[in-house]
């Protein structure tokens, strides 16, 4: 899932300051799970902004909506009437959601209310952790199912740096050393010999360095492809 976190309210305040009527749009998918942009968070943000502007003797009217998936056109289109009645949109979706609203409604300003942090998972109540950076060329088969690109702070591919101590990363004592985890897992599987293989340099063109990526399945396309 996508993990996100609300932006500081002061930052949001600056974005919507010029408007009188704003639509706040949450998303029922990932950002609901990570408690950043679901129905509750839309309510909380609207209420916080009401209090903030009240104290500044300014009034902005908020319309609150939550769509099923902000990253899909069909769901975003449901906002048509609401959008016609406001001057701006504040999205509590991930970065994809913001851009999808922009694509469907190009004429209206859309602002991000969240910082999109990572692709990850809920670790425990109230904790979400990054697990994948969508590098486009998975090597989890070589690293015991633990990704060093996402989880080693230096993205090292051939073992831990000299700062790995007691299973923790040198940059933060609360952060697990990915290579310690990899070592432990391969040991558990009796496959420590896998560590001897030198993982070659990466093809970052398969990651975002190659420009925005797309996946195409011709068999399911309705429009004609190339």
């Amino acid at each position: 899932m996508i993990i996100a976190e609300r932006k500081p309210i002061k930052e949001i305040e600056k974005m919507i300051m010029p408007y009188k009527k704003v639509l706040i749009v949450g998303c029922n998918t990932c950002v609901t799970i990570c408690m950043a942009g679901g129905e509750k968070e839309v309510d909380i943000l609207a209420s916080s902004l009401n209090l903030l502007f009240k104290s500044k003797h300014k009034e902005i009217e908020f319309i609150k909506r939550v769509v099923e998936r902000q990253c899909e056109k069909e769901f975003v289109e449901e906002l048509k009437e609401d959008i016609a009645s406001v001057e701006a949109v504040l999205s509590l979706g991930c970065g994809v959601g913001v851009q999808k609203i922009v694509e469907v409604f190009p004429h209206i300003p859309v602002y991000p209310g969240l910082n999109t942090k990572s692709i990850g998972a809920p670790e425990e109540e109230g904790v979400w952790k990054e697990k994948c950076v969508a590098c486009g060329d998975c090597i989890l088969d070589k690293t015991g199912g633990i990704c060093p690109i996402a989880r080693c702070s230096k993205k090292l591919l051939n073992g831990p740096c000299g700062g790995s101590q007691d299973g923790k990363c040198e940059i933060d004592k609360n952060l697990d050393c990915a290579w310690q985890l990899i070592y432990d897992r391969l040991k558990l599987l009796g496959k420590l010999d896998q560590l001897e293989e030198i993982i070659p340099v990466r093809d970052w063109s398969k990651a975002n360095d190659g420009g925005p990526r797309e996946v195409i399945r011709e068999d399911v396309r309705l429009k004609n492809g190339k």
């Binding site: 051939n158 073992g159 831990p160 740096c161 000299g162 700062g163 790995s164 101590q165 007691d166 299973g167 050393c177 290579w179 310690q180 070592y183 432990d184 420590l192 560590l195 001897e196 030198i198």
Partner: peptide
């Protein structure tokens, strides 16, 4: 190249040197 004989996981250190 560098090697840190004192970092963890200790058993990995010689493997890494070999690499």
């Amino acid at each position: 190249a560098a090697a840190n004989p004192f970092a963890d996981p200790f058993e990995f250190r010689a493997i890494r040197l070999a690499k």
